[in-house]
Design a protein around this nucleic acid. Sequence first.
DNA 1: CCAAAAGTGTTGGCTCTACACCCATGA
DNA 2: TCATGGGTGTAGAGCCAACACTTTTGG
Lengths: 206, 206
Amino acid sequence: MLFAVQERRLKTYLVQLARGPARGKWAFPGGLVRRGELLDDAARRELRASTGLGQCYLEQLFSFGDPSRDPDAHVVSVAYMALIADPGRVSRPSPKYAAGGWFELLKLPPLAYDHALMAAYALRRLKSKLEYSNIAYTLLPRMFTFAELEELYARILDRPIDRRNFRRRILAMDLLRPLRETRRGPHRPAALYTFARQTLQMIEML
Amino acid sequence: MLFAVQERRLKTYLVQLARGPARGKWAFPGGLVRRGELLDDAARRELRASTGLGQCYLEQLFSFGDPSRDPDAHVVSVAYMALIADPGRVSRPSPKYAAGGWFELLKLPPLAYDHALMAAYALRRLKSKLEYSNIAYTLLPRMFTFAELEELYARILDRPIDRRNFRRRILAMDLLRPLRETRRGPHRPAALYTFARQTLQMIEML
DNA sequence: CCAAAAGTGTTGGCTCTACACCCATGA
DNA sequence: TCATGGGTGTAGAGCCAACACTTTTGG
């Protein structure tokens, strides 16, 4: 399950199934683990095969023992969540699928199997990680403005955010490094920031 | 992976493997999912087979794509965590295993496969759920004193707890129902409480 | 009356929230 | 000079942590 922010909306990449009983339906890309392959490796391989993506943030979500793929083949799906900053990096829809494309998470088409459940699960996990980790680094370009970071939070958490309090809180966590450059436009230039660490860090709250 | 508190310590139930390359080593009980069986059902079935336990709290933890069981059979393990209040309910060590017994989580024998990793993962999850849910109900008898609840927290979180602050905080969450009865002993009798709901409830923190 | 564990309040510091105006730039 | 978004401070409330003595019972 691949997620990215595009046009200020949280979107996910779906593929249209070309074969099987759910043919024509949309679903998250996936596939079978190979013999001797690590789960993480299989997830990366399938992600690359479906989207052309190489390195990116990847996290195991949950396993669904669903009566999936075929109604009579018993498949266990180990769901993974991948996050990228630039949805433009996704190239071809893999030949394995009829089509591929980005969909707003809040306006998904009917999904095959139990994939709607998976999507809900992923969103929940993403929301909670936004609150207690620096996971936002995976969804933003290396340089970004505070306004961009703030909007990411507001969009995904789906609630308004007070700009001053947000800025104060984030800065107190010491996750960002200010850069010299600014982003210009028909208005006051915005200071650019970058995440001090590009690896997942949990933040103590209690 | 079954956990319980016994003699004021967090313990886990291990079985000694009777067959296979890891024969003689200790491990968490487990087994294969049957065709068409839900993961949760398989976990319950294996738990019952290994320990005689019927209903209890059960939660999927994580999936490990480990080179497990047999060095050349590729097994994916979907780890589950079960919590019970009374370790005495566990009866026979299943005939499938050479032996079974309770071990302090902090003094585990060397475990087969990657089960030590699983144990660490379970402990982490349990600690964090203690902080933001009423999961403690699974580890306590229906009636308990505040001192017992407090000790459960102190033991599992492995840090001292201020009795007055703890009591205030827990009561504010409105998870407990006071009972009329008391527990007597060679000291002032302690008021008994019960959890208002015997189902998992998340607590808002932020 | 002694031992053992249960029960109980207050204060100071910190954190969080709510809230509105000025600033810098490009057009 | 105007439109656009960027950037900033404060005060009050609520929350949390630190802290020690009194109560009730059984032996």
